[in-house]
């Protein structure tokens, strides 16, 4: 089965993960919350393409962003879930640099809301560490990556992050079980395959992407092991995304995309 648009793979993968999460892992999110997020995202996209930056309506991009939000965002308030979806989509239209997004929209939506309110949270441990599931996730994700030609940033990130975890364990004299357990985490793989790999936010050059992967992995390590805070991956990616235009060697040759195209990725 061949899909013309890699985003189709992405939507199927994310939907399957969501169904697995709700049906088997008892994620603290229900169908109503998911529908709220998806509807808010689609309406925001419609509004923006209609009145803000007139362009053809693209529904795949907001669908991908909102599916990612369903997987990560938790709140008791439907209103805050809706607001997060709105902020997520708005960031694509407002926070731009030479035709590219500064932040991965889902990453921005989550981080902005975590800064703004105490009433949303992300549950990094709820994926568990079942190895079979990790493999399942990887295989699903690799399809997307393969099609999206951004395998390098994912591989580099996983490599650097593994080196940090195993290096730390070696230094502390901990058994390998510990870094291995830390790696067997659905949240981490989701981040590596679906968030950091976003071609709309990563540098266009391979060197730039690998450098970004290194910075994000190190940043996440600092958040977890120096600052002792959770969600290090999200904080780190949001922080270093700010510097992508600065360190990208391709600064001047950032691929200029049309303001909005039907192929806009989340």
């Amino acid at each position: 089965m061949v899909f013309r648009d890699p985003r189709d793979y992405q939507m199927i993968s994310l939907s399957s993960l969501l169904i697995y999460g709700i049906g088997w892992l008892n994620f603290e999110i229900n169908v109503l919350s998911c529908l709220t997020i998806i509807t808010s995202a689609l309406l925001t996209q419609y509004y923006c393409t209609r009145f803000f930056l007139p362009s053809p309506l693209d529904i795949k991009s907001p669908l991908i962003s909102s599916l990612s939000l369903c997987l990560l965002l938790r709140s008791n308030s439907l209103w805050l879930m809706s607001l997060t979806a709105v902020i997520t989509i708005l960031s694509k239209f407002t926070l731009r640099w030479r035709g590219k997004h500064i932040f991965n929209p889902t990453n921005f939506g989550l981080v902005a809301m975590m800064l703004l309110t105490d009433h949303i949270w992300v549950s990094p441990g709820q994926w568990g560490s079942t190895a079979i599931f990790a493999f399942f996730l990887i295989s699903l994700g690799s399809l997307v990556i393969y099609r999206a030609s951004r395998t390098d940033v994912t591989v580099a990130f996983l490599l650097f992050y593994s080196m940090i975890l195993f290096g730390r364990a070696a230094w502390l004299g901990d058994p390998w079980q510990i870094p291995w357990h830390q790696l067997q985490n659905g949240g981490l793989l989701l981040f590596a395959f679906f968030m950091i790999s976003d071609p709309k936010t990563t540098p266009d050059s391979r060197v730039g992407r690998i450098f970004l992967a290194l910075l994000v992995a190190m940043g996440a390590g600092v958040v977890h092991f120096v600052l002792f805070r959770n969600n290090g991956l999200l904080w780190s990616l949001a922080f270093f995304s700010l510097f992508v235009p600065v360190f990208s060697k391709e600064l001047t040759t950032f691929k200029k995309l049309p303001t909005l195209t039907p192929n806009l990725r989340s």
């Binding site: 008791n76 994926w127 560490s129 357990h181």
Partner: peptide
């Protein structure tokens, strides 16, 4: 004071 506590490096299941 805010809400439920869960583990971040293991699943918390009801």
């Amino acid at each position: 004071s805010t809400g439920r506590v869960e583990t971040t490096n293991y699943r918390t299941v009801k």
